[in-house]
């Protein structure tokens, strides 16, 4: 029998991981909900930002905060680039083409990263103290990313609800035709959304590099999970995606301790498949 303290520690780790996952999922969900396109390569953009932090901090000796800010800037720039170069030419195409265009981007980024940096795993390790709470270890290297994620999510929430542009973004995600009739320019909103989504990817990358090592196929590790969280939470439903992130991270974390990492993911995906049948509109959707 497994010591309950391990389970408790797994649960705490799940919460800490859930914060960063929520950042990823909300960034993707924003794009998903507003532009109605699945960026299959979203987590591969995160991968690029992780590499940036690695090189700036580990190789060139930048302070951690400066590396993180650079990654956030890179993320936003990538978001804008992906939208202008790939998404906007095919906004009118069939959904499958839109999806495949970002799928091609996924192959491109993975291979290009392999070409530039080989398949070596790279990581940035900070030596920060750990706290011991009655046998449960709380390493600051996990607590700080969690805290920053939560702050960023609050900032995103305030941006979407308290600013004019944020309100416009939410309006487009509710009804894109009506927004056009109201005289708003959806293309500008799309661009802002892509930039904000990219920015979230950059921030997630800046935090993830301290938790995981980065390699060209990092996107395959968290990518599918991120899509699942978005759908589980309900497309465009920010609170739902937030809750779903923690559900998924808890499943992965606890099943990972009880069984194996792969089985943790398997169970999480099976839960996703079942949930989509039971609650197709997301976990927080009202039954209609």
């Amino acid at each position: 029998m497994i010591d309950p303290i391990f389970l408790a520690e797994a649960a705490v780790n799940g919460v800490l991981l859930g914060g960063v996952l929520a950042l990823l999922a909300l960034g993707l969900n924003l794009i998903f909900g507003v532009i109605d396109i699945v960026w299959i390569a979203y987590v591969d953009l995160v991968m690029l930002c992780m590499y940036l932090v690695y090189f700036l901090v580990q190789v060139y000796g930048w302070p951690v905060w400066a590396g993180g800010l650079a990654a956030v800037a890179l993320g936003a720039a990538l978001g804008i680039a992906v939208h202008l170069l790939i998404i906007s030419p095919i906004l009118g195409s069939a959904p499958i083409n839109q999806l495949l265009a970002t799928g091609g981007l996924l192959f491109f980024l993975q291979s290009f990263a392999t070409f530039l940096w080989t398949t070596d795993h790279r990581s940035v390790r900070l030596s920060l103290p750990s706290y011991d709470l009655g046998g449960i270890f709380l390493p600051l290297t996990r607590v700080i990313p969690f805290a920053i994620s939560i702050l960023a999510l609050v900032a995103l929430y305030l941006f979407l609800t308290r600013t004019f542009v944020g309100t416009a973004i939410r309006a487009v995600s509710q009804d894109r035709e009506a927004m056009g009739l109201m005289g708003a320019n959806p293309h500008r909103i799309y661009l802002v959304t892509s930039a904000v989504g990219g920015l979230m990817a950059g921030l997630a990358g800046a935090l993830l590099i301290f938790l995981y090592s980065v390699h060209p196929f990092f996107g395959g590790q968290l990518g599918p999970l991120t899509f699942m969280i978005c759908v589980l939470g309900g497309l465009g439903n920010m609170v739902g995606a937030f809750v779903a992130s923690f559900i998924m991270s808890e499943i992965i974390s606890i099943a990972g301790v009880l069984w194996s990492t792969e089985m943790g993911y398997v169970i999480a995906f099976v839960v996703f498949i079942v949930m989509i049948f039971v609650r197709p509109g997301g976990i927080l959707a009202r039954r209609g």
């Binding site: 790939i86 083409n97 495949l100 265009a101 091609g104 192959f107 491109f108 993975q110 291979s111 392999t114």
Partner: peptide, 22 residues
């Protein structure tokens, strides 16, 4: 030589094809 370059070009061409030959 240039490990990964072949796949990089492949991915790039896929994106181009999808955009221009929908």
């Amino acid at each position: 030589k240039l490990i990964g370059m072949a796949e990089t070009i492949y991915g790039f061409l896929l994106v181009v094809f999808i955009i221009f030959l929908p």
